[in-house]
Write a protein that binds this DNA or RNA. Structure first.
Length: 763
RNA sequence: GAAUCUGUAGCUCAGUUGGUUAGAGCGCAUCAUUGACAUUGAUGAGGUCAGAGGUUCAAGUCCUCUCAGAUUCACCA
């Protein structure tokens, strides 16, 4: 609202709504509820245009509230594991520090404090945008009861045999210091080269096998060369060995059908510890796994001395130089290929073997696929159903462990006395980093000192663990028991969000809160399509697994906001339009309207200041038209101080103009209702705009200027019904106008936010 | 490599199950208006709906192909 028109501010109106209790639904078993769980924003993140699109949810919520349904919009915010830690580490970096300067308890406390400072900011901002959320039911993902539930879910999965540890090849970012799921890897096309190396065959002078590779540096970890058994060029190499150059290790030649005869030379160097395909080959052929890069990104003791302690690109150059010098470089060709990059820091991902925690996903995915196929969960737009099912049918086991601090730790405990081969990293009393195997450190450091200064531990996959917290080992009764330092993938927690925010009890579902029984499954999950797999799919799986029902009946995927050049808005590109700046400049109503006006579902759409300005003019129009109606009423009251204002329409007294506008009103009531029901917000807002501005203002009101007081009932009826229809889109101005009208014309309903949705008028 | 989406007025985009002269906002032109309107109103110009073929009484809308662009998924050296 343009502030110059009224002394009532948007925040006054918001407060009056909130304090009236309008946002807090009352459970009424006789009525069907309507509920939406807010896609939880990151707690440390200020709002951007993407969040402003929650306007769509507010439209649904306000509409259903006006229909008289007990309506819940449940807000919350997420600790956002890796995202937040990444932001925090950037701050540390500016101070010349790093995460390695702190033990994990201290680091956790520091991040906690950082998030607490920012956590209320986006709440304030959501209120600015007029979102009618039930703040009495607000949740934060690290609240103790929520975390307890998440840990209980882990326990249940474990008891059901769906949790396991394995040392597979994972997507590891050595800069972020953690593994990622496949979804978190961004594939980018990179211009590089194919290097052709000659590997000598053992015992055969001048017989070489030439391999082609994009990653020369990994050759130090080769443990085989693979050729296709049908490849005639290599038939003589059965049972022969290769002498790996630079390393002088004898490695076998294996025959593997998956090797493409046509690619390169048809011979592949095999590095099982640093390539996903080679890992599979290594498993099938029982090859040696030699990991040559450590989790800090540097080469380790598994390579010859001169190559140790270096980053991959440094090793690459040395290997190329040394092979060239040895006359083993056959040729170098240009080659473009896809390389995985960290979605967080954009550095190349190092495929690396590491022990991780996994969820067996197939048993969870199956019911979630069925739910989509049978329509228990509906998708809008429907094309996303196919995307969802395709993805779910090809899903792989879910790596839920992250080697970061910020987030709940995986509830598993190891006994260091039973498993002295566990490696620990910690800060000693003097704050110096100590790394090593427990068996070597045992005499020198107490368990307490290790625990207090702990940064991380690495436990081989064959060690046993306990899933109940205890002070003693259940086998040897040692008190050297230490908790896993891996934390959960954020989505493991947020995947259970609808359950946990509504008070589901995973230990005993019958003891869940009344909210859960009433509001679950929720009505709609509205979110951006880019977290369909990350979040929506996981919520469906967890919902069905834990509560035996889907978490929401409809998934509505909304559009993505892009800039005028079609680019995704992001801080690093500097093309962000700040919704709060727009709110200040043009009013919240104008911003909201511009976010839904004329948009198609789930396609990118452009927000520009022009568009917002156009909607500001519309909001002004509403204000001014209302002022005109008020003026007519005031004149009437001056002349007839003792008469009441009537909104009752006497059909026999209507002229053609009256009949026309009322017919149009009826049709806009019915079209707006179906358009919102079918998520056609763009159409709904366009029709309303057209009706109000042209049918009502330009035609009816213009003609009304020449008429007497008899115009008042129709004028008021159309205005009030229009305000109601517009209210979900344009809440502030409509409410403020309505309340003035209420006082002048003696209307019954106290506020628009809880007023009844219009019904067609009988003519 | 697989899948999906997009191509409609100068710009940004709507167009629901195929149905009369294809719509909006911004911009542009002309006129009017400053007594609801930090303006607004009236009128108008501007489109072979990417291209080709097909189905149909009827296609922007359905089918096939071509061209152009975007995105997502994917372990190919």
């Amino acid at each position: 609202m343009d502030k110059s028109y009224s002394s009532v501010t948007e925040s006054d109106i918001y407060q009056s709504w909130e304090s009236s209790g309008a946002f807090t639904p009352k459970i009424d078993k006789k009525k069907k509820p309507f509920s939406i769980i807010l896609p939880l924003p990151n707690a440390n993140d200020p709002m951007h245009m993407g969040h402003a699109l929650f306007t769509i949810e507010d439209i649904l919520i306000r509409y259903h509230r006006m229909l008289g349904e007990p309506t819940l919009w449940l807000p919350g915010s997420d600790h956002a594991g890796i995202e937040t830690q990444f932001v925090f580490e950037k701050m540390l970096q500016k101070e010349g520090k790093s995460r390695f300067d702190y033990d994990r308890q201290t680091l956790y406390q520091m991040i906690w404090g950082f998030v607490e400072k920012n956590r209320t900011l986006n709440q304030f901002q959501m209120k600015k945008l007029g979102f009618s959320m039930d703040w009495t039911r607000y949740h934060y993902s690290l609240e103790t009861p929520i975390v307890d539930n998440v840990l209980a879910t882990f326990k249940k999965l474990y008891d059901d045999g769906l949790i396991y540890r394995d040392e597979k090849i994972v997507n590891y970012c050595t800069f972020c210091g953690t593994a990622f799921s496949n979804l978190e890897v961004v594939h980018k096309s990179v211009d590089s080269h194919l290097w052709y190396f000659k590997y000598p065959v053992v015992g055969q002078k001048d017989r070489y096998v030439t391999v082609a590779t994009t990653r020369p540096e990994t050759m130090l970890g080769d443990t085989a060369v693979a050729v296709n058994p049908k490849d005639k060029r290599y038939l003589d190499l059965k049972n022969q060995k290769i002498l790996l150059p630079l390393v002088n290790r004898e490695i076998p030649i294996i025959f593997e059908e998956t090797v493409d005869i046509k690619f390169g030379t048809g011979a592949v160097k095999v590095t099982p510890s640093h390539s996903p395909e080679d890992y599979d080959m290594g498993k099938i052929h029982g090859l040696e796994f030699i990991r040559i890069f450590d989790y800090d990104g540097r080469s380790n003791q598994n390579v010859p001395l001169k190559y140790r302690g270096l980053f991959p690109n440094q090793v690459r150059q040395m290997v190329i130089d040394d092979l060239t010098a040895a006359g083993l470089m056959e040729k170098i060709k240009d080659y473009t290929h896809e390389v995985g990059h960290c979605y967080r820091c954009s550095r190349p991902i190092e495929p690396i073997t590491a022990p991780q925690w996994y969820v067996k996903i197939a048993p969870l995915a199956k019911p979630a696929i069925d739910a989509a196929k049978t329509g228990k969960v509906k998708f809008f737009p429907v094309r996303f159903k196919k995307t969802y099912i395709d993805w779910m049918e090809n899903i792989r086991d879910w790596n839920i462990s992250r080697q970061i601090v910020w987030g709940p730790r995986i509830p598993a405990w190891y006994c260091l006395d039973c498993h002295p081969q566990i490696k620990v990293n910690f800060l000693d009393k003097n704050k110096k980093i100590v790394s090593g195997f427990y068996k070597d450190l045992k005499g020198k450091y107490s368990v307490e000192e290790i625990k207090n200064g702990l940064q991380s531990l690495v436990a081989p996959v064959d060690v046993s663990f306990m899933v109940e917290e205890s002070i003693q080992c259940s086998k040897c009764h040692s008190s050297a028991v230490i908790q896993e330092t891996d934390t959960f993938d954020t989505w493991f927690l947020s995947g259970q969000w609808p359950l946990n925010t509504l008070g589901f009890n995973p230990k005993d579902p019958s003891k869940s809160s009344p909210d859960f029984g009433y509001f679950y499954p929720t009505s709609v999950m509205d979110t951006l399509w880019d977290i369909l797999f990350f979040w929506v799919a996981r919520m469906i799986m967890f919902g069905l697994y834990l509560a035996k029902d889907v978490p929401f009946k409809t998934v509505h995927l909304h559009s993505r906001v892009v800039d005028a050049r079609g680019q995704k808005m992001s801080k690093s590109k500097g093309n962000v339009i700040d919704p709060l700046v727009m709110t200040e400049k043009y009013g919240t109503d104008a911003l909201r309207m511009s976010l839904v006006y004329g948009i198609a579902p789930a396609s990118d759409f452009v927000v520009s200041e022009d568009k917002i300005r156009a909607q500001r003019n519309f909001v002004n129009k509403i204000w001014n038209a209302s002022r005109f109606v008020l003026m007519i009423i005031e004149r009437f009251v001056e002349k007839n101080p003792k008469l009441n204002i009537s909104t009752t329409i006497d059909i026999s007294k209507l002229n053609d103009d009256d009949k026309n506008i009322l017919t149009n009103l009826n049709s806009i009531i019915s079209s707006t209702t179906t358009n919102i029901d079918k998520y056609r917000f763009g159409q709904a807002s366009e029709n309303l705009y057209q009706f109000f501005w042209h049918d009502f203002c330009d035609i009816y009101i213009e003609k009304a200027k020449d008429r007497g007081e008899d115009v008042i009932p129709v004028l008021l009826t159309v205005l009030i019904n229009s305000l109601k229809l517009l209210h979900p889109f344009i809440p502030f101005v409509t409410e403020s106008v309505y309340q003035i009208l209420r006082d002048k014309a003696g209307l019954e309903e106290p506020q628009l936010v809880t007023a009844s949705w219009p019904k067609e008028i009988k003519l």
